[in-house]
Amino acid sequence: MAQTAIDIDIDEIIERYPGKPEYLIFLLQDIQAAFNYISSEALTLVCDHTGVPESQAYAVATFYNSFSLEPKGENLIHVCLGTACHLKGSGLIAENLMRRLGLDGPGTTEDLKYTVETVNCLGACALAPVAVVNGQYQPKVTSPKLMKTVQKLGDE
């Protein structure tokens, strides 16, 4: 599943909100959602629109976990590291997945195919351990199960 639509008009996103500093995060979120990352050009546009200095916008974009300034892979995998998931071994699952994809830590594979991220609790503790692959919850996941799902995506 391709995460980024390629025909989204960034100006349309910018114009969704009034040009005030308090909408900075809204805009960054919408851009992140549409393009999967916030390019420097997009950041500049947002600053122009909201009147926030670029350095402050950059600080915000790097402060919050959900923003990425680098393009993300075509497939997004979140592994939950909430307490319940941790107790049920999600740490090992995440490590194994990253090892299999050749990643040192959370991040994007070189071919831009996968991005693995860890999240601190998705609030689905009853399903621990949980992973979310391209928006689909994978309840009670195991390393082999997750690997299979991931590999299937790569073959598409």
Binding site: I25, F26, Q29, Q56, V60, F63
Partner: peptide, 24 residues
């Protein structure tokens, strides 16, 4: 307001900064 991924924004003053569009 949607949070943007920062646990510290559960702290009230940080949350308010975040609503203002700032670093939390």
């Amino acid at each position: 307001n949607r949070g943007a991924g920062a646990f510290v924004c559960g702290e009230e003053t940080a949350l308010m900064r975040s609503v203002e569009g700032k670093v939390g």
